[in-house]
């Protein structure tokens, strides 16, 4: 059976470091315990999806449109905006006309 390999040719499987890295990329805080548990879950799912590697996809283009359809384009007209109260209505930390976030150091 063909198996999925990553770009460097190694068989894919995740360890705790990888889980932590994915969690960081996903911006989801994760405890040590959760990371531990996730290793097994992700590996289970990844091992299962690996069967896709068996499929001969020579000459097959990845699907781009589910149903044959073309991208419609809009006219360049201002039809929206000027709805500040709607935009800010659910803000967890509204500051005047702005959204407030913890200070960002650039």
């Amino acid at each position: 059976m063909l198996r999925l390999h990553n770009a460097s040719g190694t068989l894919m499987s995740v360890d705790k470091d990888t889980v932590n890295k994915i969690a960081r990329l996903s911006r989801i805080a994760i405890s040590d315990e959760e990371a531990e548990k996730m290793v097994g879950e992700l590996n289970g799912i990844l091992a299962w999806v690996e069967q896709l590697g068996e499929v001969d996809v020579t000459g097959v283009e990845p699907m781009t449109a589910v149903i044959p359809n073309h991208l419609r384009l809009r006219d360049d007209v201002v039809t929206d905006g000027d709805v500040r109260e709607k935009v800010l209505a659910n803000a967890p930390a509204r500051e005047g006309s702005f959204f407030g976030v913890p200070k960002v150091i650039e």
């Binding site: 999925l4 390999h5 990553n6 770009a7 460097s8 894919m12 995740v14 990888t18 889980v19 994915i22 969690a23 990329l25 996903s26 989801i28 996730m38 879950e41 992700l42 799912i45 990844l46 999806v49 896709l52 590697g53 499929v55 996809v57 097959v60 283009e61 990845p62 699907m63 781009t64």
Partner: peptide, 29 residues
Amino acid sequence: RRRIMIGTYVLSAGFYDAYYTQAQKVRAL
């Protein structure tokens, strides 16, 4: 959280083609 992490993983650098592109090809099949 689990699905976000799977999704993040399969799109991440070095894995995108092996997972996502392959899956979209299989989808075409």
